[in-house]
Structure formats: structure tokens, C-alpha cells
Computed example of a mutant assay.
Amino acid sequence: MKDKNKLEQRSTVYDVAALAGVSPSTVSRFMNQTTYVSDAKRKQIQAAMIELGYKPGQQTGASASSRTMTIGVLVQDPDSPFYSSILNGIEEVLLAQGYSHIIVTGHWNSEEEMESMQLLLSRSVDGIIIVTGGLSDEQVVEFSKKRPIVALGRELEAARLRSIKIENSVGAYMATNHLIQLGHREIVHIKGAEGHPDAQQRYEGYCQAMEHAGLPVKLQLVEQGDFTEQGGFDAVQRLLTNKRQFSAIFASNDLTAHGAMLALYKAKRPVPERVSVIGFDDVPGSAFFIPPLTTVRQPIFDTGYAAALTILDMLNGGASNNFRIPPVELVKRETTQAHIL
């Protein structure tokens, strides 16, 4: 007969998943009750947990007796390819260590983000990963007094707060400079969500590249977007309606670039023959877009992976942020070409 105590000590989410015949992420979502899991799979998971004696939140060792083995993750749009890749990186680390995660959303609304953070606190998560967003630095520092926090896309440090910087300005400079080197001078920038740190930093990188090349930043060629396909589409339509003259577009992210390219297609301005377009992020679908999108690749999965390693290191008493991510890089595909006067 199996020793139940031994089973409880060594059983993990992976054991439950293997016995139930489902993926580890399905087990995690079932335990968190944040995503629909079919009745058949629920019954398989419950049966496996009973047989293994697995209890969500279990961890051996007296020092961990107060832990829930759950990490909260605040994102803006979990359906976005960018956030999906971040979450995949986070999930890979957490599941391997027997942790679950609760995903909450902010939808680019600071009030909704505050409510989501309060929800995570009420669920007694052990720590929180904040993936960009509109919370002020002061608010993030204040929340870190209640739970350890890793914040992506910021430069903050506090007693229980670590941050992982995303090279937004550097990447934006690279993207804009690429267009300048191709001979473009009338370069549009479609900004990201208003008030968002990533959006501001990418705009700054665009301005720096223009200024270093001796080119003026023309405000009539700067359009407000919101990091979505619709935002990129609408921005290009406004430019065309107002008869702005331009030969290239630097979009604040790949989704914005996708929307911009659709608007150009509808206006019969082929990419890249009439207008060159470059994005930022290199989400999975960009390599398969028609034409494939030139973009700035940031290590999205690696960033999520590093964030998860950092929060676990903090929970285990680590005092430094030693987990680094690869630098951004320019990925040349087929949506940019030399400007022909």
C-alpha cells in the first residue's frame, strides 16, 4: 500500500497533470479557478489530486508554513500575444517549482489596476508580478510594503521591490534609425497607450534618433495610439484624412503596426513600396504577417521567465536582482526598404 505522507511530500503539479492526463497549466488554472476547465478534465484532476494526496499550496518545511504557493500576476490584456508570451515564461518557472498563479487584468485603466491589486492581496498571494501598466511608481512602492513585488518595465528598488527594465528607448532608437538609414525623412510615430511608461520611453527613443540625425520631430506626424491593432488602423486613417505626407511609420508595438498596415492596404499604399513600416516586440505572428514585419525584438518569454525567478528568489531571501534578460535587437524582414525620391 502506498505511503500517503510520502506522496504528499513529493507530489507536484506535474505529478497531478501526468496522472490526470492533462497539461500542468490546465491543473494550475483549475486550482486558481480563473479560466474555464471542462467538467471531464475537472473530474480527472480532482481524482488525481485525491490519489496523490496533493493539496494546493502545500510545501514542505516549517519556514514555508504560512505560504500559499501562489503568485499574483497583473497584466493589461491576457489575450495579447505580448502578454501571452510573458505569461508563458512566468508559468514555466512557477509550475516547475510547484507554484500556482492568479492572473488579474488592468486594461490600461489605473483604477481597475488598483482593484486588481487589492483582489490579489485578498487572495493572500505570496508575491506579485506587475507586467507594465498605469500604476504610479509611488503606488507600486506602497503595494510592495504588503507583498514582495517584481515590476516589469520600471526602474524601481525598495525593500521588497525589484524591477526588470525593458530597453524601450534603445529599441525605439534602433527602429527609427533603421528607417533614417534607409533614406526616410518623413517618419510617422504612432504612440502607445497614453500615460504608459513604455509608450513614453519609445517616443523618447524616436525623438532622440530624429534629433541625432538632424531631423525635426514634426508633431503632425506623431499620432496617439493605444498598443492595439485598432489604434494603429485609426491613426493611419487620421494621417491620410489630414493629407499628411510620410514615407515610413514606426509603430509603438507590433499590434499597432498590424493595424497600420491594414489601413495602408485599404488606402492602396503598398508596404514597403510606398510606405515602410517597423514595429516593436516581435510577437509570434509578426514573422508570418504578409509581408513579414520588420520589428525590434525584445525577449518577451525570457522577461517573464526572469520575473518569475526573481520573485521566487525574493521569497527565499535573495537580496539582489541577478536575473538578466538578452538585449533588444533589430529584426529585418520585408516591410522596410530604401526610400526612393
Rank of each mutant, 00 (worst) to 15 (best):
T26A: 14
T60S: 11
T34C: 06
V125M: 02
E113Y: 10
T105Y: 00
G106F: 02
E113D: 15
P24H: 14
V27C: 09
L120Q: 03
T60I: 11
F82M: 05
I129K: 10
G72E: 02
V140E: 08
F143S: 06
I130F: 11
Y54W: 13
E155N: 09
S28R: 08
S38G: 07
M114D: 13
A62E: 09
D126V: 06
D126S: 08
Q59Y: 12
K55Y: 09
S63C: 07
D39R: 08
G89T: 05
L119I: 02
G57E: 06
Q139E: 15
H107D: 09
G61C: 10
Y83C: 01
N32K: 13
R123P: 04
A48I: 06
T70D: 03
D126Q: 12
A48F: 09
Q139P: 08
S80G: 01
L52V: 06
T60H: 09
T132K: 10
H107E: 10
V75N: 02
R67F: 10
E113H: 11
T35P: 04
L74T: 04
A17L: 13
A159M: 09
A96V: 02
P78Y: 05
R123G: 09
L121V: 01
R160F: 01
S63V: 07
T34A: 04
Q118E: 13
A151Q: 02
R29N: 04
F30I: 08
P81C: 06
R123L: 13
I129E: 07
E157W: 00
L52Q: 01
M114L: 13
Q44H: 15
L19A: 11
T132V: 14
V37P: 00
L94Y: 03
A151H: 00
A47K: 15
R154L: 03
L74K: 07
R42L: 07
I103E: 06
R154T: 03
K43Y: 10
M117Y: 01
S84D: 11
L94M: 07
Y36D: 09
V16G: 04
V140I: 15
L121E: 01
I128A: 02
D39Y: 10
T70I: 05
A20S: 15
G153Y: 04
K145M: 08
F143L: 15
M117C: 03
Q76E: 14
I71S: 01
G61E: 05
H107R: 08
V75D: 02
V104R: 00
S84G: 15
T34Y: 06
P81Y: 08
I128P: 02
A17T: 08
T26Q: 11
P81G: 00
E51G: 07
E157G: 01
